[in-house]
Write a protein that binds this DNA or RNA. Structure first.
Length: 260
DNA sequence: ATGGTCGCGTAGCGA
């Protein structure tokens, strides 16, 4: 089983890139972020034609997440629980049925939080507290659980080309890292670190300042695994060549391969 | 020191 996450930065502007990659890589489950469209305008047919079931939680202009699965989707939760006054579409969770049993997968688009300090940073931290609360509830099921997405968090200094350039940014501030660690320390494993702990690879290169050409990237797209999922992880691939394609997203897919 | 780039939607915001 291969489970991927990819911030596509508009699924409509990126449709050719997305369908090309789905055909090439053929992952079983894909978590998309920043689809930037309402559900009714999601290019559902083009993706269903490639053999995927599709669940979306869209929004006009900004944000929006989706989950694609070659296996049946049993149940779907739209929106991160505990945010009745939160109108930003940043979370969708599905239970996927597999011969070996169910796996619960969430597609997460964690708030960017810049500029920090400020209301956007407060929103980021509050959202992370809500995610922690919900993640703790899901972990209690003691099932295979994968929280995958654009976390907008640079976990280690080795996950950025130059930490000094990013000092003060909401993606690297100590408070942001601490909030991310609190979630991890509930009992999750960062799939990339388990599979490739000494490595440093990036998942995002800004469109500006020639970041891609200079390899000035950051690692902010993560797969967080429950113990039951981590036990079956075989490898993680960060699909760097995708960033070099025509009309590329600023993020590349991250794919976890599991032994079930 | 400043500006550089995308996408959305058609001005300016978000990243």
């Amino acid at each position: 089983m291969q489970i991927a996450t990819w911030n596509v930065n508009s699924v409509k502007a990126r449709l050719t890139n997305v369908t090309d990659w789905l055909r090439e890589a053929s992952p079983d489950v894909v978590c998309l972020q920043e689809i930037k469209t309402v559900d009714a305008d999601f290019p559902r047919d083009a993706i269903e034609d490639l053999g995927y079931n599709v669940e979306t939680h869209g929004q006009k202009t900004y944000n929006g997440v989706a989950l694609l699965s070659k296996f049946p989707i049993e149940e779907t939760v739209r929106g991160l629980p505990g945010g009745e006054d939160d109108d930003q579409a940043r979370y969708i969770e599905c239970v996927i049925s597999h011969d070996s049993g169910p796996v619960r997968v969430a597609s997460i688009y964690l708030p960017n939080g810049n500029p920090a300090p400020g209301p956007k940073y407060d929103y980021k931290l509050a959202w992370m507290r809500r995610l922690k609360r919900h993640a703790a509830e899901l972990l209690a099921y003691e099932e295979r659980l994968i929280l995958a997405g654009d976390y907008n968090i640079i976990p280690r200094d080795s996950d950025v080309h130059d930490p000094a350039v990013w000092a003060g940014d909401a993606l690297i501030l100590p408070q942001s890292r601490a909030a991310f660690r609190e979630i991890l320390n509930l009992g999750f494993t960062d799939a990339f670190l388990q599979a490739d702990g000494k490595g440093h690879q990036y998942t995002f290169w800004d469109y500006q300042r020639g970041a891609w050409q200079k390899d000035h990237g950051i690692r902010i797209d993560h797969l967080l695994l429950s113990p039951q999922a981590a036990d079956t992880l075989k490898s993680v691939e960060i699909c760097k060549p995708v960033r070099g394609k025509e009309k590329a997203s600023d993020h590349v897919p991250v794919v976890g391969t599991f032994d079930f």
